[in-house]
Simulated scan of single mutants.
Amino acid sequence: MTILITAVSGHYGRLVVDALLERGANPADLVATARDTSKIADLAERGIRTAVLDYDRPETIAAALDGVDRVLLVSGSEPGARLAGHRNVIDAAVAAGVELLAYTSISKADTAVDFPLVADHLATEQAIAASGLPAVILRNDWYTENYTADVSRAAESGVVASSTGDGRVASATRADYADAAAVVLLGDGHAGQVYELGGDTAWSYDELAAAASELLGREVTRVRLTTAEHVAALESAGLDAGTAAFVAGLDDAIRRGSLEFTDGTLSRLIGRPTTSLADGLRAAVAVAAA
């Protein structure tokens, strides 16, 4: 069984390859792809086939999928501009007759319709369903690593500021989510499933400030902002009005509960507890400082 992973030059895709190997995959059965294969040349040295795959160049997708049985489509990185590329991969997977397509979506993609990041993911899920491909949807909640910059700023300011209100986030680490993808790609019985994946514990921003305090060895205070105050602060920091509204919109979605869902599906899939907020932040800050 040959498994192809897209976007392996990114943090998550690389971790999926690592997880597949740790779970016993034969390197010769893996195809690691990226737009620039020089960024994953070390994997070729480990016996893994590497190939160019650019979502916006269909000819590269068709070539990479030759002889492939299962595919992990890692969502593109540009919100609002990734659906066409996703469709290209889906179409190529249909043409290649792959037996399973896994896609990294976002938490509650079908119901959190006012969440700024949902539209591309929901449209991709719908395109996969319409294609008739045997598929599994991995709806990943937030990455704990997303908060590395917040901790770094808190080291200087002593503040974690947000307009999330009492909203909670069921984050897990990239490695936790990558491990779940490996389980699905190597196992059977996952086709047709939609997995809502999140950390075992949904935490508040007060808890984020407390975790930052412990990690940094200094007091970190949580500052609550209104959405208007948040937008104004972001614009004062140099963001344009559209980007500031987008970022504040993410906090607003968290405030309304878009990322708080957790039912233990992720830990059940990977067979262990998910990484705690404190441990995840500690590891992320250490990597950023290296």
Rank of each mutant, 00 (worst) to 15 (best):
M1P: 07
L4R: 06
T6I: 01
G13W: 03
G13V: 02
G13H: 03
L15W: 03
V16E: 13
V17T: 12
R23M: 13
R23Y: 14
G24E: 13
A25H: 05
P27G: 04
A32I: 05
R35D: 05
T37K: 07
K39R: 15
I40E: 11
A41R: 13
A44E: 15
G47S: 10
I48C: 13
I48M: 11
R49Y: 12
T50C: 04
T50P: 08
L53W: 02
D54W: 08
A62S: 13
G67R: 08
V68M: 13
R70Q: 06
V71F: 08
L73C: 06
V74N: 11
S75D: 04
S75I: 07
P79K: 07
A81D: 15
L83S: 05
A84N: 10
G97P: 10
A102S: 15
S107Y: 05
S107Q: 14
T111Q: 10
T111D: 06
V113L: 15
D114K: 07
D114R: 09
F115T: 02
L117Q: 10
L117I: 12
H121I: 01
L122E: 03
L122A: 01
E125P: 00
A127G: 02
I128H: 04
I128W: 08
A129L: 02
A129I: 03
A129T: 13
A129N: 01
S131W: 10
S131Q: 06
L138W: 12
R139V: 14
N140F: 15
W142C: 12
Y147R: 05
Y147H: 12
T148L: 05
V151I: 11
R153F: 04
R153E: 08
A154E: 01
E156R: 11
E156K: 12
S157A: 11
A161Q: 04
S163T: 03
S163G: 15
D166V: 01
R168L: 08
A172K: 00
A175T: 13
L185N: 13
G187V: 11
G187W: 11
H190M: 13
Y195E: 11
G199M: 04
T201A: 15
A202M: 07
W203H: 14
S204V: 09
A209V: 07
A209H: 06
A211Q: 09
A212K: 02
S213E: 01
E214P: 02
L215P: 05
L216H: 05
G217E: 07
E219R: 12
T221V: 14
L225Y: 14
L225N: 09
E229C: 00
A232W: 00
A232D: 01
L234C: 00
E235K: 00
S236C: 04
S236L: 09
A244S: 05
V247E: 01
V247M: 07
L250R: 09
D251M: 06
D251Y: 08
I254Q: 11
R256D: 13
E260L: 09
T262M: 04
D263R: 08
G264E: 03
G264I: 02
G264Q: 03
T265D: 03
T265R: 12
R268V: 01
R268T: 10
L269Y: 07
S276C: 07
S276E: 02
S276D: 09
L277M: 06
A284I: 05
V287C: 07
A289W: 08
A290F: 13
